[in-house]
Amino acid sequence: DVEEQIRRLEEVLKKNQPVTWNGTTYTDPNEIKKVIEELRK
């Protein structure tokens, strides 16, 4: 469920934690926001 994935990513973003997505770890909040934007398409 895309909405659920977006919610999880936004939670991690608020906590300033790194996100691992498709084998890539993102630590930059701007990169995480880009992943969220991609999911919304």
Rank of each mutant, 00 (worst) to 15 (best):
P18R: 04
T27E: 10
D1K: 11
K41Y: 06
E4A: 13
I6V: 06
K15Q: 10
Q5P: 02
K14Q: 12
P18G: 12
E3L: 13
G23K: 01
D28W: 01
E4H: 10
E31H: 04
N16G: 15
D28E: 09
E38M: 14
P29T: 07
I36M: 06
R7E: 07
I6Y: 02
E3D: 10
N30L: 12
W21L: 15
N22K: 06
T25I: 12
G23L: 01
I36G: 00
T20G: 04
L39P: 00
L9E: 00
E10Q: 09
W21F: 15
P18L: 08
P29K: 06
D28L: 03
K33E: 08
V12P: 03
V12N: 14
K14M: 11
K34W: 08
I32K: 00
P18E: 14
E11I: 05
N22F: 14
K14V: 11
R8H: 13
N16P: 05
Q17V: 12
N30F: 12
P29R: 04
T27G: 03
I6W: 03
K33M: 14
W21H: 15
R40W: 07
V35L: 15
K34L: 10
N16M: 08
I6L: 07
I6C: 04
R7M: 10
K15G: 07
D1P: 12
I36W: 03
L39T: 01
R7W: 04
E3W: 15
K14S: 12
W21V: 15
Q5N: 10
R40H: 04
R40N: 03
V2R: 07
R8K: 12
K33N: 05
V2L: 14
V2W: 06
E31A: 06
K41H: 10
V35K: 03
N30S: 14
K34D: 05
N22H: 09
D28M: 02
E31Q: 08
V19D: 11
E38W: 11
E10D: 04
K15A: 13
K15P: 02
Q5V: 14
K33Q: 10
E10N: 06
I6E: 01
E4G: 08
T25H: 06
V19E: 06
L13Q: 04
T24E: 14
G23I: 00
V2Y: 09
T25S: 05
L9M: 10
T20N: 15
V2D: 03
N30G: 11
T27V: 06
E31R: 02
E10R: 04
L9H: 00
D28K: 02
G23F: 02
Q17S: 09
V19F: 11
E4I: 09
Y26D: 01
R8V: 14
T25F: 12
T24L: 13
T24D: 05
Y26L: 14
N22A: 06
Q17L: 15
L39G: 00
E11G: 06
P18W: 05
T24N: 11
V12L: 15
D28F: 01
V2N: 06
L39R: 00
I32E: 00
L13C: 05
K15L: 14
V35M: 08
E31P: 01
T24F: 11
L9D: 00
L13I: 13
W21Q: 14
E3M: 13
W21S: 12
P18H: 08
I32Y: 01
Q5A: 13
E11T: 05
E10A: 04
D1R: 12
N16I: 03
T25K: 03
R40P: 00
T25A: 03
T24G: 03
R8E: 11
Q17C: 14
Y26S: 01
E10T: 07
N22Y: 10
R40D: 01
I6K: 01
K34E: 05
V2A: 07
D1V: 09
Q5M: 13
Y26T: 02
K33L: 13
E3N: 12
K41P: 02
Q17M: 15
L39A: 02
I6F: 02
K34V: 05
Y26H: 03
L13H: 03
V2E: 04
Y26M: 10
D28T: 06
K41F: 06
K14P: 03
R8Q: 12
V19Q: 02
T20Y: 15
T27F: 09
E38P: 00
T20F: 15
E37I: 08
I36F: 04
K33W: 11
T27D: 10
V12A: 15
T25V: 14
V12G: 15
E10C: 08
P18I: 10
Q17E: 14
K34A: 13
R40G: 03
T25C: 04
K41M: 11
G23N: 04
V12Y: 15
N22S: 03
K14H: 09
N16Q: 10
L9I: 10
W21M: 15
G23E: 08
L9Q: 00
N16L: 06
V35G: 00
L9A: 02
E3K: 09
E4F: 08
P29Q: 08
R40L: 09
I32T: 02
G23V: 00
L13T: 03
D28P: 00
N22P: 12
L9F: 11
I6R: 01
T27Q: 07
R7Y: 04
T25E: 10
Q5D: 11
V2M: 08
V35R: 02
N16F: 13
I36T: 01
G23T: 01
T25W: 08
I32L: 05
T20D: 15
V2P: 06
L13G: 02
K33R: 13
D28R: 01
E37P: 01
V12M: 15
I6Q: 02
L39F: 03
T24M: 08
I32S: 01
Y26I: 13
E38V: 07
E3Q: 13
K33P: 01
L13V: 09
D1S: 13
L9S: 00
V19G: 07
W21E: 09
P18Y: 06
R40A: 04
K15N: 13
P29C: 06
E38K: 07
T27M: 06
E37M: 08
T24Q: 12
N30H: 11
P18T: 14
Q17G: 11
R8Y: 15
L9C: 04
R40S: 04
V2T: 06
K15D: 10
I32V: 07
E4M: 10
V19T: 05
T27L: 06
N22L: 10
W21T: 10
E3G: 12
W21Y: 13
K14I: 11
L13P: 01
Q5F: 13
E31G: 03
K34H: 09
V19R: 00
T25R: 02
Q5H: 06
E38L: 13
V12C: 15
E10S: 05
E11N: 05
E37A: 12
E11A: 09
T25M: 07
I36R: 01
E37G: 04
G23A: 01
T20E: 15
E11K: 05
T24K: 11
I6P: 00
E38Q: 12
V2K: 05
T25Q: 05
K15W: 09
T20C: 15
T20K: 13
P29S: 06
K14A: 14
L39S: 01
Q17R: 07
N22E: 15
Q17A: 08
K41L: 12
E31T: 03
R7H: 08
G23R: 00
I36Y: 02
P29H: 07
I36P: 00
G23Y: 01
N22Q: 13
K33D: 03
W21N: 12
E31F: 04
E37N: 06
E11W: 02
K34Q: 12
R40T: 04
E38R: 12
V19M: 07
T20W: 15
T25N: 04
D1N: 13
E4Q: 10
N16A: 07
E3H: 11
L13Y: 05
N16V: 04
L39Q: 01
V35A: 05
Q17D: 09
D1T: 15
L39D: 00
E38N: 09
L9G: 01
T24S: 08
E11R: 04
K34G: 09
V12H: 15
V12E: 12
Y26N: 00
E37D: 12
T24W: 04
L9V: 02
K41V: 07
Q5Y: 07
L39V: 03
N16D: 04
K33Y: 10
R7T: 09
K34Y: 05
R8L: 14
K33S: 06
I32N: 00
V35E: 01
R7L: 06
P29D: 04
T27N: 11
E11Q: 07
N22I: 02
T25L: 14
E31S: 05
D28Y: 02
K41Q: 13
I32G: 01
G23W: 00
N16R: 10
I32W: 02
